[in-house]
């Protein structure tokens, strides 16, 4: 299963679901990362982590370890 962390620069994907017991899931959803939403992997930070995503025209940054807990369907 592909996760947000596996995307490459510029790639878009649709959020499928959150891994169980991921306590921050709710916070991330409130910020717009709802299952079914399309996200674009904008870029990784110069030191490799965290990564920047575009959701609904907004840029969000999250760490790779958290991104790896969100599965996606490639578009």
């Amino acid at each position: 299963m592909k996760t947000l962390n596996d995307l490459t620069q510029g790639q878009s994907a649709r959020i499928a679901c959150y891994m169980p017991k991921f306590s921050a899931a709710r916070r991330l959803m409130e910020l717009g990362l709802m299952p079914g939403t399309t996200v674009r992997f904008v870029k990784a930070a110069p030191l490799g982590d965290p990564i920047a995503l575009e959701v609904d025209g907004r840029h969000l940054s999250l760490r790779r370890e958290d991104a790896a807990k969100i599965t996606v369907q490639a578009l």
Partner: peptide, 9 residues
Amino acid sequence: PPQTFVLEM
């Protein structure tokens, strides 16, 4: 506990 770091740019 490892905090989720999420930041709006």
